[in-house]
Write a protein that binds this DNA or RNA. Structure first.
Lengths: 179, 179
DNA sequence: CATGTCATGTAAGGTGTTACATGATTTC
DNA sequence: GAAATCATGTAACACCTTACATGACATG
């Protein structure tokens, strides 16, 4: 069995949720996975093509009136197997999150203090907005997917985002005070 | 003035701390910036070459007895200006941290519960180890760089790592209970 | 005598984004 | 009439890691 990268498995996984087209996949990603996995069309379409060639998915073109043609993708049993196998693989190593704010703060000595503070305030605001986004997503899942068997897991991942973001906001406040 | 990527500025910044060679830069990165910025030699050496060509740094080859030759890089005034200018630029957008654990958990419905729990336990352990690493780095900074004017800022970035990691550990515990 | 440290560098390949191209329909 | 939504796709380029190549000295 070939090996694929995580993004490919993400697409495979999303196809189990009812999303069928490249467009659908992008929608769900932006709405529900965006806080820990984000990809562009430039990745989605070529990956779907590749998955079709490897026979992990099949494709059907459907015509709709008033809307453009769609290509609908469905997992094959081989595709489902590949997904399940990947899920069971242990996670190698958590890659480092690159943080531009921390990078600049690391060299904060070469910057006027008021600029450093302004940057921290700005970052804090972005984090607060992010936290609000998470709350919106949470609401959306609770109302639109109440009976969805996936909902529970989706809320777990959201909770992660909420907790770590809240911790980052606390850090902003503490650091602003300390400077 | 040309534009460079953040990694290039990271290298420029590290050159202000007393590190002078590519090897030194890698050392400091691994020891002090590794929790929010990590790069390989495959990036460092070509970047130093490029910075020399752009005249942001100068290079001197020094011979040492018992050790290989070293190339020592020094910031030029043009280089220092570029660094300061970059520090003042506002941060565009915080990129999304890709998290394989969350990605798999998102599709947790297709995995046996005991496997999901095992993965969370594993992740938790890695986070605990990471927290310990941060504490070691903190100790190292407090003892080796007590009088260093950079130390304060380095400790701020470490505090970020500690707080967000602790929040992630809390999340692990809560999620393990909830499943 | 094997491993670790010090030290520099390149080539190949993977991964990803951005910008562009195309075009119909619906909503304000 | 403009903008948003729906929908697919490619080419160019940016960025980065891994593996390899080289070699001396020090430590156990």
């Amino acid at each position: 069995m070939e090996k694929y990268n995580n993004t490919t498995y993400a697409i495979l996984g999303i196809l189990t949720t009812g999303c069928k087209s490249g467009y659908d996949i992008k929608q769900l990603m932006d709405r529900s996975l965006s806080h820990f996995w984000k990809i562009s069309y430039g990745q989605i379409y070529p990956t779907l093509k590749q998955l079709t060639e490897s026979e992990l998915v099949t494709v059907t073109t459907t015509t709709q009136d008033g809307k453009p043609d769609r290509k609908e993708y469905d997992l094959t049993s081989k595709g489902m197997e590949a997904l399940e196998k990947w899920l069971l693989q242990p996670i190698e190593q958590t890659p480092v999150e690159r943080n531009e704010v921390l990078l600049k703060l690391f060299f904060g000595r070469h910057q006027p203090t008021d600029k450093t503070l302004a940057q921290l305030e700005d970052y804090k605001q972005k984090l607060v907005e992010r936290l609000q986004t998470y709350t919106s997503i949470e609401q959306a899942i609770r109302t639109n997917h109440e009976t969805d068997p996936d909902a529970q897991y989706w809320l777990f991942t959201l909770d992660y985002g909420k907790r770590t973001t809240a911790a980052a906001i606390d850090w902003c406040n503490a650091t602003i005070k300390a400077i």
